[in-house]
Nucleic acid binder design. Structure first.
Lengths: 345, 345
DNA sequence: TTGTAAGCGTTATCAA
DNA sequence: TTGATAACGCTTACAA
């Protein structure tokens, strides 16, 4: 069938087989108008028979276009991202683009490396959930004219695209909802301190407290990595401190991520607390698992699929030159009332 | 800071700035022994100041190595893959490789396109969950000498690598477990018909039935796509047929994917059936959500992280030439007993 | 230790 | 409509 050690099939080789010049083959393969229909058909047939596939490295080097986009995310394991990735993937499949996927692990240094990798690989653009909206890494993107759509948090620049679920509104809605349910001492379980999303999330929380004349308590604001384990850990630690020194009291918890909320559930189960009897809990993102928790988690729905669709379309339009203006899309989270919040007097 | 319209920084440009030849720069950047320490340091400093980053397309074209691996999966949205992707990503980050990620959507045609894309992009190897173990697509991989590690199902070739969770054992364990709990009429909710995993899964099911002298019933074997929605749909349809014609009876369900099992939960809730009172259910994969279902889903744990680690390491070793032999790793699923199976008389 | 030059597979320009 | 040629940015003989 396939001859071993067969010569590499490239345009030059096809040209030799077809008895024409490489440029003619190139034109035929690209369906260039400057090529007779007849030769096109002939070349295409030969290319197919030889199982030719183009060398995208050479093509990219030559054309300065790779039909590739980069996706840089903070944690490939967070279920939050999968609907988004799937949505992007579907769009790319349709138009023969591919994606290079990187995980920054919430580390600026790793993020920088990832951005440079994208530049080096000549991707046509990136979709990035930045670690920090004010970091040098954003400058790196801008100064290198790398087309980008920011998701998750928004750098403070004019000439950028973003598709942003407003975290400030999210925490505001959550906090207000709890307050209206009688809660005054609300623990904020925030993400990593350096994460811009955490800062924004804090803002909405404070805003809501202020609106209802509740004095914020520094001890009720905690920062941690976004994972089930960390949620579990921190809640156990809080519980321990609480029972000993008894300096922090709260009746409700807001967390930046459903994962943290799940960790709280785990810890509560172990410690023996009841949700929402002892503590009310609100999560964020509305990942699959939340609706099956016991009690089902009240959370804020993030429109993950739309984030993917919008960001991919914006980026692609810009790459294809169909749209020059910068697009700024702000999506609103939506409260999903389930069973983890209790009304208290 | 950055001069607008600045000249592209490449090796040639650095050479000019440094007053040396391009090859000297190339050697310096690659830490080639044939370059004086002094010039190396000088070049490196200049490169840094100029914010040089290498053009990986050119490098790849020249070296026939791209430090890129391709990942081809059947459904980017299936939580089964998250841990695997994350594990692969962590390993790649450590050694400055990147991944190109593609979704084949369980379609052979799309899979073929994805494989060709990987070849065209000159990836150093792929990790693939093939749609069908006997398809022409496998030949495509082999004939093009594309290094590959197969996960999820195993093509019938000698010279391949795979990391495989044995689905036959999975369904056998599940079926036997149900039988030992008194079930005789067991519905098999399988994946898509053309999917090799489905065929293998069926095998273990039949084997267990045979062992206990239970005659298989064709009507109790169903095929469908792996998603919550499809699980929901098919179960509602089965219920409808069942109540009208009453030709199929069963007390337990085995499904190829936890997602299908969740769909069954949803349908049951709506119809009013009790799990495991009316039907016992066993899933497969042990995705995060399963332990929070009500009742918690009894399922077979698939070692997802290990699949990622093993497959990445095998592939990388082979790419780096550290290992020439083909590696075949079979992992065993492990029964996770929870609350969705009831013992009957 | 360094420089020259050719080549990786494409494509755009120019000339025929 | 086709062909020759140079160039994309990098590396590696080979020569100096």
């Amino acid at each position: 069938m396939s001859s071993k050690k067969s010569k590499k099939v490239n345009i030059k080789y096809i040209a030799k087989v077809a008895g024409v010049s490489p440029s003619t083959v190139s034109r035929a393969l690209r369906d260039d108008p400057n090529a007779s229909k007849k030769t096109k058909e002939r070349i295409l047939k030969i290319a197919k028979k030889l199982n030719y596939y183009p060398n995208l490295l050479a093509k990219g080097l030559r054309n300065k276009r790779t039909k590739t986009i980069g996706i840089i995310l903070n944690d490939l394991k967070n279920p939050l991202y999968y609907d988004t990735i799937k949505a992007i993937g579907d769009i790319l499949n349709d138009i023969d683009y591919t994606m290079v996927l990187c995980d920054s692990n919430y580390e600026q240094k790793l993020e920088k490396k990832n951005i440079i990798t994208m530049l080096s690989k000549g991707v046509d653009g990136i979709i990035i959930s930045p670690v920090n909206a004010k970091s040098e890494n954003i400058k790196l993107i801008i100064e290198n004219d790398l087309k980008a759509v920011y998701i998750d948090s928004v750098p403070d620049y004019e000439k950028i695209n973003y598709v942003y679920v407003n975290h400030e509104i999210a925490s505001f809605i959550a906090t207000e909802y709890l307050i209206k349910n009688g809660h005054k001492n609300i623990l904020l379980l925030n993400g990593p301190y350096q994460l811009t999303s955490s800062k924004v999330f804090l803002k909405g929380y404070l805003k809501a407290l202020k609106k209802y004349d509740i004095k914020p308590n520094r001890a009720l604001i905690k920062y941690t990595d976004l994972s089930i384990d960390k949620g579990y850990e921190i809640f156990k630690k809080i519980y321990k401190n609480n029972s000993i020194v008894n300096n922090i009291n709260f009746t409700a918890i807001i967390s930046l991520s459903d994962l943290l909320a799940i960790g709280i559930y785990e810890a509560s189960k172990e410690i023996g607390f009841i949700i929402p009897g002892d503590y009310s809990v609100i999560g964020y993102d509305n990942i699959l698992t939340t609706s099956y928790l016991n009690p089902p988690l009240t959370t804020l729905h993030a429109p993950k699929i739309r984030v993917g669709k919008y960001s991919a379309n914006i980026l692609l339009n810009q790459i294809e030159g169909k749209n020059i203006e910068y697009k700024k899309i702000v999506l609103k989270p939506r409260l999903v009332e389930r069973g983890s919040v209790k009304k208290i007097n």
